[in-house]
């Protein structure tokens, strides 16, 4: 099994320091970067599949020059190598440009499955996977809670979360799958993994390498623009209730009554 995992470096949500710069674009220097949390779930699933069926997990990131630092964590978790698409012209890319660049990069790779995360914490679009699948005309299986390939038959089954339970989807490989947290908790890199990651290969590709034109990517091609930003009104300071359970319950009931919630 050859599995490509799309991983995006994002500002660490735990630092809660994300901000827009004066140009209303994400200020990537403001926060330390981490692998997008939802991408770790699909990476975990990819690692388990390769453990079971053999093969290779390749990380594919379109990211600024600092991308490899973040990709090392994915390599430390167990991915075999990385492909880093980077180019000054890519700054300011929107979801559609990102999908086109990733599709171009996949065009020169070999794979049975491409896995993408549910969405990103800095963009939360959740549309890049569908865009890539459409461009490459790959079967698209989304909201995956479970991934079961049958390498002999060349097919893959996915349990897709539905409003009332699950749909079981089946498609021939290669296919693109968007996963969810139900795939299972991502592993922590072991010390050995961290040491080993240092010597793993991360290949660099520019947009020229991919045969793309600088005017078709980045800010130049972005379709959307932030016009204004504001801090939302804060809830006033919380009423703090201490005391016995009985007193606390009374305080809650009083607030519910006052706000006509009973």
């Amino acid at each position: 099994m050859r599995i490509v995992v799309l991983t995006k470096p994002v500002p660490d949500p735990a630092a809660a320091a994300e901000r827009l710069g004066p140009d209303n674009r994400l200020d990537r220097a403001a926060s330390p970067a981490v692998i997008n949390g939802n991408d770790e779930y699909v990476l975990e699933a990819a690692l388990k599949l390769v453990e079971a069926h053999g093969g290779e997990v390749v990380l594919l990131s379109m990211a600024p020059a600092t991308g490899p630092e973040t990709m090392r964590k994915g390599l430390a978790m167990g991915a075999h190598r990385g492909v880093h698409v980077t180019d000054p012209a890519l700054a300011g890319s929107d979801a559609w440009t990102t999908a086109r660049v990733l599709a171009a990069a996949l065009g020169e790779m070999e794979y049975d499955l491409v896995l993408a995360g549910f969405d990103t914490s800095d963009g939360t679009a959740g549309v890049v996977g569908a865009g890539v699948a459409t461009l490459l005309k790959l079967p698209y299986l989304s909201s995956a809670a479970q991934i079961e390939p049958d390498p002999k038959a060349g097919t893959v089954r996915v349990r897709r979360i539905s409003a009332t339970g699950f749909d079981v989807l089946e498609a021939p490989m290669p296919a693109l799958i968007v996963g969810t947290q139900l795939l299972g908790e991502p592993r922590y890199p072991s010390l050995k993994g961290i040491m080993g990651a240092r010597s793993k290969e991360i290949a660099t590709r520019s947009i020229a390498d991919l045969g793309l034109d600088a005017t078709g990517v980045g800010i130049a091609a972005s379709r959307t623009e932030v016009a204004s930003k504001r801090t939302p009104p804060q809830r006033g300071d919380a009423i703090v209730v201490r005391g016995s359970a009985e007193e606390a319950a009374t305080a809650i009931v009083d607030l519910l009554t006052e706000r006509r919630l009973l």
Binding site: A125, T134, T224
Partner: peptide, 21 residues
């Protein structure tokens, strides 16, 4: 989940821009 799949697919089919959520 369905709407975002539709949006991502339409984006690529119609060469469109997307604003989500």
């Amino acid at each position: 989940p369905d709407g975002r799949d539709v949006a991502g697919t339409l984006m690529a089919l119609l060469d469109g821009g997307v604003l989500v959520n």
